[in-house]
Amino acid sequence: MTKLSGTDLGRRKLLRCAGAAVLAGAVQPLAIASPAQGAIFTTLDMDWIDVPRRRGVPVRLYLPQGVRPVPLVVFSHGIGGSRHGYSWLGQHFAGNGIASLHMQHVGSDSQLWSGNVFNVVERLRAAARESEAIARTQDLRFALDILLGGELGKRIDAGRIVAAGHSYGANTTLLASGAQVLRHGRPLDLRDERVRAAIVISAPPFYREGELRRILQGVTVPSLHITCTDDVIRIPGYYSAAEDRVAVFDATGSARKWLSVFQGGSHSMFTDRGAAGGRVLNGRVKAAARDLSLAFVRHALEEEAPGLAEWQRRHAAILARFSVVAPEVV
């Protein structure tokens, strides 16, 4: 594996120092709720600092109550997002006995929308540069190191970890799951071996990185891909058609992978915005995506029968396509 700045051998020796750099009072229980099946969970905000990289990594953890170690989903937001986003998914996981750790990537987070409005295009372009893409994957590794190495780590089953993300965060997820790009003729390997499965929502292709199958063939963990027919990405200097999400699915090397394409919608429908893609459709798609994501995690980590035929029947009216690679899965 190619070693990058901030991940050398001395980095692990500094993790204890990094943990000590958590801001005073940063572990804040925000809420206890039970949105699914009567389960109770706690929401914690923590502000961690990766000392070797001089980079903050704020996180929000949705943690189910109980004494048994639980699986973990580690979530990466899209460009301009934050740890507060995608609560519709984090709460659902936690309400069903799965912890969900939502990172905030400080180089491409909601701070992009602050400051001079005339410079927002420059800020967006800076957030999309290669160094930030690498830093996001390092954020994921660091967040797992800190969580699993601390007191809260006793509540997590380190053998059952899923990476997940939306848009730019889907690229982060793919890199942490085995996607490789070439630099100076050599693969830049950012895979985290602790990741056992991947949830990829609205994934852009790897822009100007060459043949997609070569990049994604190293993603061999089970993967779930979620998109919609109007999932078009338009940011200054970058355009990606909805068909690109399906191309990512096709190119991924997973022996077990699922694809759900909802009818209509929009790229931002999968954020916490309640009206994006249409208010009625928004709620219906999120409900379907929640159930599918939960079934995928349980199947990928615990080999549970996912009940996909019933899921398809229930959501047929909003589905444009549903594909499963692994025909024995029903």
Rank of each mutant, 00 (worst) to 15 (best):
L294V: 00
A287G: 09
A305V: 14
D231T: 07
D231C: 09
L216Y: 01
V261D: 00
F322C: 08
H225S: 05
D291Y: 05
S268E: 12
L301R: 09
P222N: 08
E302T: 03
R290I: 03
L308C: 08
A300Q: 04
A242P: 13
T252P: 09
R279T: 12
L301A: 05
S268N: 07
S254G: 13
A242G: 13
W311F: 08
V248N: 09
Y239I: 11
R298Q: 03
D291G: 00
T271D: 11
V297K: 07
D291I: 02
A251E: 01
L281F: 09
A295K: 09
A305P: 10
S266M: 08
R214Y: 12
A287L: 13
R321S: 14
F296P: 01
A316N: 11
V221D: 04
A316I: 10
L301G: 02
A309R: 11
R279M: 10
P236F: 11
D291S: 08
W311S: 00
L292S: 02
A251M: 02
G237Q: 07
I226R: 06
G307Q: 01
D244F: 00
R290W: 06
T252Y: 00
G274V: 13
H299A: 13
D250W: 00
C228W: 04
P236C: 02
Q312I: 09
R279F: 11
T229S: 15
R273W: 14
A295D: 01
R245T: 10
G277N: 06
R314L: 07
E302M: 09
G253F: 10
L319S: 02
D272F: 02
V232M: 03
D231W: 06
C228T: 10
S268P: 04
V246M: 11
S223W: 04
I233C: 10
I215P: 00
L301H: 04
G277I: 05
R298D: 04
R214F: 14
C228Q: 04
V246I: 15
D231L: 05
V232R: 13
L281I: 01
L281Q: 10
H299W: 12
V248Q: 04
V248M: 09
L308V: 10
F262S: 13
R313N: 10
D250V: 10
R245A: 13
G277C: 09
L259H: 03
L216G: 07
A320E: 08
V297F: 05
D230L: 11
K286M: 06
A241F: 05
Y238A: 08
Q263C: 02
T227C: 11
A300P: 00
I233A: 06
E303P: 02
A289H: 02
L281C: 10
L308Y: 02
M269I: 04
S260F: 07
L224N: 05
G218E: 03
G277V: 01
V219G: 07
E243Q: 15
G265Y: 04
V297H: 08
V246A: 14
V261H: 00
V219E: 07
F249C: 08
L216P: 06
H225W: 07
H299E: 14
V221R: 12
W311C: 01
R273C: 13
